[in-house]
Design a protein around this nucleic acid. Structure first.
Lengths: 145, 145
DNA sequence: TCTAAAACATGATATAAATCATATTAAAAG
DNA sequence: CTTTTAATATGATTTATATCATGTTTTAGA
């Protein structure tokens, strides 16, 4: 469904959200090591997100990636749309050229409601909310700022 | 989610189910043209399915692909498992190394029930049932034998 | 028994996704 | 103003997926 790049991106952004602030940035290498993601690959991905203003970065010593308040209000859907391309969600699960309520494929009735709920979730929740949720789910202490 | 090969395979098998019998076989080229699938690619895929005894074939003039009664009792899950590899369903939607009810990713609560329902559906319904369903959904006349 | 139709087998090519490598630029700190 | 750190930019390489091409084998029918 999602490409590896998108998955890496989402996991990295959630990690950055929970572990940085404008005062305490983090390098892409450190993120890569912690999350077991190929470092040069993640570096490139984070740069794309920076360009799209979904995350922020600062060069030089004590530089790194971090999120501004504005960044935190973006959604996971924005990340997917930046890295992959959200049109992928529109395709039929079985690859049928035509697949809709009138002429559905044999799993349309299962796939469609899932897709609607998923996209709703990815679009309406902010990165900040998601990061908090993640921290709660995994019994982590989100950074206090 | 599914590879193109799997999608092609499923669509082709459903088509074969609805348009052939042991007496009236169909060539892979004809299937490919009708379904707009690259012909040599589909040919290879159908051969794999034949080897796995999910569909049947006969060489020579008036030869082609068809389904036996036994073939018809296979499932779409069998097709996916033959072409791709069903382990793919076990992976976390966001690619997290650990993702389960105790330590879920942020979309686990949406993805898990979908996956369970989907697999149940793909596993328990026979190719014959699915083909009939497809024909009904699309107002086609399934072949009478 | 010869011919033609179609699956079968194998491998080559193309495309895209993922990974790795190198050099440049910017910022902080001494 | 020099050094160091870390992002940025670019492109090379690898791997996997998808597509194409060629020749061989089997079978039916004339």
């Amino acid at each position: 469904m999602l490409s590896k790049s998108s998955k890496y991106a989402i996991r990295a952004v959630l990690y950055i959200a929970n572990n940085t602030s404008e005062k305490k940035k983090i390098g892409s290498k450190e993120v890569a090591e912690t999350l077991e993601i190929p470092a040069p690959f993640l570096a490139k991905t984070l740069q794309e997100l920076t360009k799209a203003e979904i995350i922020s970065s600062m060069k030089g010593p004590n530089g790194g990636f971090y999120l501004t308040d504005k960044n935190e209000q973006k959604s996971l859907f924005d990340i997917i749309d930046c890295i992959d391309n959200a049109h992928k969600f529109e395709e039929c699960f079985l690859g049928q050229l035509e697949c809709n309520d009138d002429k559905p494929c044999v799993v349309h009735h299962i796939y469609k409601p899932f897709k609607i709920e998923l996209i709703e979730n990815l679009k309406t929740k902010s990165i900040l909310e998601m990061a908090k949720e993640y921290a709660k789910n995994n019994n982590l202490n989100a950074i206090i700022r």
